[in-house]
């Protein structure tokens, strides 16, 4: 298997709680992989570790074969591994377009020196970035909101903005934290289409999702987390028939 993300022997404790417990799995390059599990299973903690916002107590995270555990969040992002947040973190007082134009790397105008130089180069760069941002907004269906302050978006639109910001950098692996939570059913169909398009463009997706219809329909492989440990991994149909998974979700005793 050609893995883009490999997690091995990962542990992370918060006080008395073993949030991540000998966690081990990998994500195949080019796949849509689902990460499911009951509330408190450690899914978001795992995302925080992989994206560099938390350091693991022990264990390894590899992205494209390279160890990234313990790296700073911005360094992980620069490698081409980007994430969204479960609760949208839109930059409220900035326009939707500005939220995206923040993203492109290596902007000349993003240096103090550029301020005292002639601005032709920056203007050119801004034009190109604005065009790219509008294209991404088109893709997620937010093009009419480009100039609105991000604070004015609806809950579902903020989710789309999270996705758009992630897409703007053309990453190779995207971690999506509950992309459809709190989104109305019609918009969920659109969101799933967007995720399929993203996937078709060659981006690998790892998705935390509670909506089982979305997971079963979208993902080719599902990893089930319970109390920080992987209790099952397989195709949607395998997972649906897994006794241990049912127990974990229905609150049964350890199988």
């Amino acid at each position: 298997m050609n893995a883009i993300l490999e997690i091995a022997g990962l542990n992370r404790r918060f006080g008395g709680l073993q949030a991540i417990d000998r966690c081990e799995f990998s994500v195949r390059k080019g796949s849509i992989t689902g990460l499911i599990g009951p509330n408190g299973a450690g899914k978001s903690t795992l995302f925080n570790i992989v994206s560099g916002f938390l350091k693991p107590d022990s264990g390894e995270v590899r992205f494209e074969g390279r160890r990234i555990d313990g790296m700073a969040p911005h360094a992980v992002a620069r490698l081409g591994l980007r994430r969204t947040f479960q609760i949208p973190r839109e930059l409220k007082r900035m326009s939707v377009l500005e939220n995206l134009m923040l993203v492109p790397e290596g902007q000349f105008g993003d240096r103090i020196l550029s301020v005292v130089l002639p601005d032709a180069r920056v203007r050119e760069e801004e034009r190109a970035n604005a065009a790219a941002a509008r294209e991404v907004l088109q893709m997620v269906g937010l093009e009419t909101k480009a100039d609105a302050p991000a604070a004015l978006l609806s809950g579902g639109q903020k989710k789309l903005l999270e996705l758009a910001r992630c897409l703007m950098s053309r990453p190779r692996l995207m971690l999506l934290d509950e992309p459809t939570a709190g989104v109305n059913p019609t918009l969920i169909r659109d969101l799933m289409d967007v995720m399929r398009q993203v996937h078709a463009s060659g981006i690998t997706l790892l998705i935390i999702e509670h909506n089982m219809n979305v997971v079963m329909e979208l993902c080719e492989r599902i990893v089930v987390l319970d109390r920080g440990h992987v209790i099952a991994a397989g195709t949607p149909s395998e997972i649906q028939e897994n006794r241990q998974v049912l127990d974990a979700y229905l609150g049964g005793a350890d199988a």
């Binding site: 911005h74 992002a77 007082r93 902007q107 105008g109 550029s114």
Partner: peptide, 22 residues
Amino acid sequence: FPIGRTLRAIREDETVVASVGK
């Protein structure tokens, strides 16, 4: 300038700015 946009973004939410690789 774009640098000002990045600084404003830091004022709004530093976590987001780190998550986009800055």
